[in-house]
Every structure is written in structure tokens, then in C-alpha cells.
């Protein structure tokens, strides 16, 4: 079985996000970018499937700006076998919308014929949480979202899903799209020899046009703003004072 893992280049989770002065989005010029953390978990799971003898090949794919090849190299250094870069934007600020990404991925699936797609449940930049689901709709494959456990046996997969209020276990038919959640695994860090090997692994470069997909945005961002800064707290001297303050604030 071949496993396809879509990975997205996003602003690094350690970076303090700054909104552009015109409110059109987040400033990404000269900012540290990394692989979307949920996608790292997907890559890790795919490699584990390969190590367990349940997958033969792990193919990482990224759709975005040319610099996404760094993200793909990270996936290759972790252990993916090869990578496909689909250049769909020139400006680092262009976010390809989930539907366009799903359409391109569908085209890649037609070409590559994987038995499983493992993707992150969402990207930490826009939190859309949509690509996996849209891809399942476009392909007509089964979907298991928010996976915190995954077990593949023959032509079905058992997926434990993290849902509000607990865990739900479902059994789905393969081929399938599985979107992964935080607790599925702990991704490995790349070793130096694997980083060196990754530089020599195949990385195909294509464009969105090669797949005939129009990536023009359908959504318009009206405004982006920073969260309100938290107001300084106040230390109260006694329970009575606390109760009085809470009443004053209308919280009691």
C-alpha cells in the first residue's frame, strides 16, 4: 500500500504572529515557517505504518509556494520516500483554499493511486479543518477524522476519533482519508544522516495548472485582527472582597 501525506508550510508555532497593518492577513515576510504540526503527526503515522510492514511507500505532497520544498525535505528527513511539490502561488501570503487543495489532491490520487491518505485535521494558520473532508467527498472514499488511534487490517481501518465528550471508534472501508489529531503519536526528530539522505530523495515539481485546477480564491478576507490583549488582573484580599467584585462585574 502506498500512503499519501499532504503537508502544509505554515508559520512556525513558536513565532509571535503579527497582523499586517492593512488588516489583510498575517505578516509572513521573513518569518520562520515550519511543517504544520498536525501534518508532522500524519507523516510519523505513515512512517510507522511502513515500519510495521503495512505500507510500502510514503509519498509527501505539498501545495503552495516554491519554498514548501523545505517542508517536503523535512518529511523526507523524517522518513518519507519521495515528495511532490505543486507550486500554486508565488507570494508567501497566498493561502490556497481547502477546496482547491482538495481538487489538486484528488488529481494526485488519480495519478498515484494510494491506498490511504493521512492528513492533519487542520492547519494551524487558518484552522479551516476542511481539506480532508472535502477530499473524501471528491474521491468518494471513506473518511475518519480526528484520529487518535489508527489500526489497519486488510481492507478496513479502525479509527478512534476524538469527539466532543469522548472517543468514538469507527470501522471504515479502505481506501480512506484519515485526518489525524494531536494524540495519535509523537513525531520523531530527524537524525543528521536522514537529513543528508533526504537531500538526495526524489522531489518532483509540478504546478496547479498541470492538474488543471483553478486555485483562484473563492473567499474574501474582510479583516484580520489580533486578539484583544488580556487586561491586567487584580489581587483581592479576602473572599468577601472577591464576591463583591464578582457582583460588581455582574458575574454573580
Amino acid at each position: 500500500m502506498k500512503v499519501l501525506v499532504p503537508v502544509k508550510r505554515v508559520i512556525d508555532y513558536n513565532v509571535k504572529v503579527r497582523v499586517k497593518s492593512d488588516g489583510s492577513g498575517v505578516d509572513l515576510a521573513n518569518v520562520k515557517m515550519s511543517m504544520n504540526p498536525f501534518d508532522e503527526i500524519a507523516v510519523e503515522e505513515a512512517i510507522r505504518l511502513k515500519e510495521a510492514g503495512k505500507a510500502e511507500e510514503v509519498v509527501a505532497v505539498s501545495i503552495g509556494v516554491k519554498q514548501s520544498q523545505e517542508t517536503l525535505r523535512t518529511a523526507l528527513a523524517m522518513g518519507a520516500d519521495r515528495a511532490i511539490l505543486i507550486v500554486a502561488a508565488d507570494d508567501v501570503h497566498t493561502d490556497i483554499e481547502p477546496l482547491a487543495v482538495a481538487k489538486i489532491l484528488k488529481a494526485v490520487i488519480d495519478e498515484e493511486a494510494p491506498g490511504l491518505v493521512l492528513c492533519g485535521k487542520q492547519a494551524i494558520d487558518n484552522d479551516m479543518n476542511a481539506t480532508g473532508q472535502m477530499l473524501a467527498a471528491l474521491t468518494g472514499w471513506s473518511q475518519g477524522t480526528f484520529a487518535s488511534e489508527l489500526d489497519i487490517e486488510g481492507d478496513s481501518a479502525t479509527v478512534t476519533r476524538e469527539v466532543d465528550g469522548g472517543l468514538q471508534t469507527i470501522k471504515i472501508k479502505m481506501p480512506a482519508i484519515v485526518s489525524v489529531d494531536l494524540r495519535l503519536n509523537e513525531p520523531r526528530y530527524a537524525s543528521l544522516p536522514n537529513i543528508m539522505k533526504a537531500k538526495k530523495k526524489p522531489l518532483d515539481e509540478k504546478t496547479a495548472a498541470d492538474y488543471g485546477v483553478d486555485t483562484a480564491p473563492r473567499l474574501e478576507i474582510v479583516k484580520t485582527s489580533e486578539p484583544e490583549t488580556r487586561k491586567a488582573g487584580e489581587i483581592v484580599g479576602s473572599v468577601d472582597e472577591l464576591v463583591a467584585k464578582l457582583k460588581e462585574a455582574g458575574a454573580l
Binding site: M33, Q67, I195
Partner: peptide
Amino acid sequence: MQDHENDEFQDIRDAVRAL
């Protein structure tokens, strides 16, 4: 850790940081 733009050694930095 302070924001730093990616440099040509980002792969090495990321892997050492993760370790």
C-alpha cells in the same frame, strides 16, 4: 525562542532543536 527567519541551515536547526 525568539522569531528568526529561516536560514539555509533550517533543517539542521529544527532537528537539533527537536532533540
